[in-house]
Design a protein around this nucleic acid. Structure first.
Lengths: 151, 151
DNA sequence: TATAATTTGATTGTGTACAATTAAATCAAA
DNA sequence: TTTGATTTAATTGTACACAATCAAATTATA
């Protein structure tokens, strides 16, 4: 009686959220040895990815790309600035806006990071069909989230 | 020249890890309003899921289910104990082992949690085919991880 | 133009995550 | 059986993550 079927929906193995949560953590953990070599944490790495692409960006815009708020980004960006990879500067037109720009050192770091995606790909060993499916489904979910939060 | 194709592999949109990381965070965030009602955080919730099923467990065994180490679990379990949902007690046979047991209050919480999986399911709005695919791929990845870390 | 509302980051506090170290207990080998 | 290795949690330190609040600047409105 203690293990009635009513409770099956609360079993860890029947959750979709849990493998998502656990996988995300494990993947970030697998990144660590590679990211250590370029002195970045995972959060710093994805922030740099956007910086490499955009060169200059406000904290707000960066946060929208990364799904992170200023409470998380402020310390991350301060660390990246102390490492000399980005500069933080208030906009002259609107002092509420803080613009983040890539430095020469930050730009050079891009070349050091080039090998990381391939190395990670190997260590996940997911066949390309599954990888594409996973990519598709996750982006579908994310799209649903941004849609739902804008009313 | 600044945006050569060599760097495409470092674009955020070409990563598989990033939507995984972002989705996991968003899903946990979506849980919050529901979990607030039973005074649990997400980590506490998944710990309770295992406790509801197993009734009694060592910290180590719990950590293996959740992919979490004692550095994370110790404070989580102390909080759950302070809320009266679990008891922590050293094993008499082997004092290195700390056994966690479900209390009557902890057991009762299970009924309050019953509606959460359904409510979350609605708010993710993923069709069942995609949900099954996602479940399959994530578990495949997790299996690959545990395999790779046992040598 | 005052005043109110909004935008934007920063700050604060709580709660994970995890590596590295410590400490205690148990187990294994010579 | 004593020493050495292993197991198991706890502790410490660093780094997110996010809700809530604050503060400053800008924009909109009466």
């Amino acid at each position: 009686m203690a293990d009635e079927k009513v409770y099956d929906c609360l079993k860890l193995e029947n959750q979709l959220c849990f493998p998502l949560y656990a996988c995300a953590k494990e993947v970030v953990r697998r990144y660590k040895p590679f990211l250590d070599e370029i002195d970045l944490t995972y959060t710093q790495y994805i922030a740099m990815m956007v910086m490499w692409e955009k060169k200059e960006l406000s904290v707000k815009a960066l946060g929208e790309y990364l799904y992170l708020d200023s409470g998380t980004l402020t310390p991350v960006l301060k660390t990246l600035e102390s490492k000399g990879f980005v500069k933080r500067k208030r906009s002259e037109k609107d002092e509420r806006i803080l613009n983040v720009t890539l430095t020469a050192d930050g730009c050079m770091l891009r070349d050091k990071a080039l090998s990381i995606p391939t190395q990670m790909g190997k260590c996940l060993d997911l066949d390309s069909k599954d990888a594409m499916e996973l990519y598709r489904i996750l982006h579908k979910m994310l799209a649903g989230f941004t849609e739902a939060s804008e009313y």
